[in-house]
Amino acid sequence: MAVLSYVIRRLGWAVLTMFAASVIVFAAVKATTDPAASLRGPGIRAEDVQRFRDDLGLDKGNVEQYTTWMGNFLTGDLGESLKTRRPVWPDLRTAIWNTVQLGVVAFAITVVFGVLIGTISAVKQYSWFDNAATGASFIGLSIPTFLFGLLLQIVLVLKFQDWFGGTPFYTSRMNSPGESGFGIDRLRHLVLPALTVAVQGIAVYSRYMRASMLEVLNSDYLRTARAKGVSERRVIVRHAMRNALIPLTTFAAIDVGAILAGLVVTEQVFEWPGMARYFLVALQDGDYVRVLPWLMIVVFAVIIFNLIADLLYGVLDPRIRVG
């Protein structure tokens, strides 16, 4: 019951947070952008701009615009884009799905390699592998995402073509012309952006994992396990890693929520039509009707995954449970 009450309380705060965020972002978007202001050029007259504003209701009071939007949102109507008149939801849904694909693949690479490298580094502390991993992780953290993405394009596509006469990778986009859906072609397009996203994650996760493992490896219960004759492999995999993963798991849960906001640089460099590009284009258009649902989903995801992280912590470590 205590856990249920806790979850309900957190969800209540989530609703309040989403409402506050929507007000702040609506005000920010209205204050800094104007869909009509992008209408410029010798053929566009002042009366054209005013008529445009009238047609789209841009001159109505901000409170009226916001409450109209919120009223529709609460009834499940996300409305139509101010610019394109396309319904908001189908495009947003597609952007979510695209980011999820990239995020999941990148996240999987991050976790697998991050945990593996961190574990080996800890077990072989101060070995050549540990030193190399430490150096590589600092490089991974330091190199700007856009630069790493472009390097991957040059090395794994252009140079690869020169060296081997072909390459399995693509510089950009989700599919080749005429292709669609999640298949081999999509996977080949996914490799470079996923690696670009993953490289920083691996650097961070491997450091976390190394530190966490070192802490566990020196604990009494492992010494006891060894003394009882448990094999070293079993000690590390079953006893050490399991406990070392607890802080990383909660950290990862928070990361997953943040991924849904999109991967700004990577999506731009690799022409990946995900959440970040959706947001940037909508913001550029001053299209608050598109920006606000994006915001709601992102805030909701962050809150939910934070909640999951908190709950997971309790599940994984029985000492920390809501009492």
Binding site: V155, F164, T167, S176
Partner: peptide, 23 residues
């Protein structure tokens, strides 16, 4: 960077379109 991962897929790529990605 990532060469080993690349090698895992190169055979398939070179096989299906002779190295030219555009159809």
């Amino acid at each position: 960077v990532g060469l080993s991962l690349s090698l895992a897929l190169v055979a398939a790529a070179c096989g299906d379109d002779d190295g030219d990605q555009t159809s």
